[in-house]
Simulated assay, not measured.
Amino acid sequence: MKTADLSGVLLDYWVAKAEGYEPWAGATIPKGEFMWKAPRAIGTDIGWVTHRFSQDWAHGGPIIERKRIALQWLAKTREWDARCDSASGSFTGYALATAPLVAAMRAYVTSEFGDEVPDPGDIRNE
């Protein structure tokens, strides 16, 4: 699947993978019935979470700040342009979307996994 086409549950799935979360074994894609086990580096509570990174600023916003993702409104195309910065100052991920949080999370996934990711289909997560 092209990272530029990811949205909803599939986009959240790949953001969670990039963040180091472990999927719940009973979860299914694309229904969105999944939970994530937070890695120790994220916080002290190692419980199950249901983060929707591309839909909730409380979950996606800290990633934008930490990864220095630049957002810009493109009036001509009526889309948000998102670019993920690297330590060297170059961009490692780029994406467009009609919603800024979706564009930012696509850019993040692109920076971590490239322009394409495997389609998890309707599988049970590992």
Rank of each mutant, 00 (worst) to 15 (best):
T3V: 15
A4M: 07
L6K: 07
L6Q: 00
L6I: 09
L6V: 12
G8W: 06
G8P: 01
G8D: 13
V9S: 10
L11E: 01
L11W: 09
D12S: 03
Y13C: 11
V15D: 10
V15S: 03
V15P: 00
V15E: 05
A16I: 01
A16S: 06
K17G: 04
K17L: 14
A18C: 08
E19F: 00
P23M: 06
A25L: 12
A25D: 08
A27N: 03
A27Q: 09
E33M: 11
F34N: 12
W36I: 05
W36D: 02
W36P: 03
A38I: 05
A38V: 14
P39M: 07
P39D: 04
R40K: 15
A41T: 10
A41S: 15
A41I: 13
G43A: 12
D45G: 03
D45A: 13
I46F: 09
I46L: 15
G47S: 05
W48R: 04
W48Q: 04
V49F: 14
V49T: 07
V49D: 04
T50D: 15
R52Y: 08
R52C: 06
R52M: 12
F53H: 05
S54R: 02
H59A: 14
P62K: 05
P62I: 07
I63C: 03
I63A: 00
E65A: 05
K67N: 01
R68Y: 08
L71P: 01
L71M: 04
L71R: 00
Q72M: 11
Q72R: 03
Q72E: 07
Q72P: 00
W73I: 00
L74H: 10
A75G: 13
K76W: 02
T77K: 01
W80A: 01
D81K: 01
D81S: 11
A82Q: 03
A87D: 13
S88P: 02
S90M: 12
T92A: 06
G93E: 10
Y94Q: 14
A97F: 04
T98M: 11
T98Y: 00
T98N: 11
A99N: 12
A99I: 03
P100W: 07
P100K: 02
L101D: 05
V102T: 15
A103S: 01
A103P: 02
A103D: 06
A104K: 08
M105H: 00
M105D: 09
V109R: 07
T110F: 08
E112H: 11
F113D: 13
G114N: 01
G114Y: 06
G114P: 09
D115W: 07
E116K: 10
E116L: 09
V117H: 02
P118W: 08
P120V: 07
I123N: 14
R124Q: 14
R124P: 08
N125E: 13
N125L: 15
E126W: 08
E126M: 08
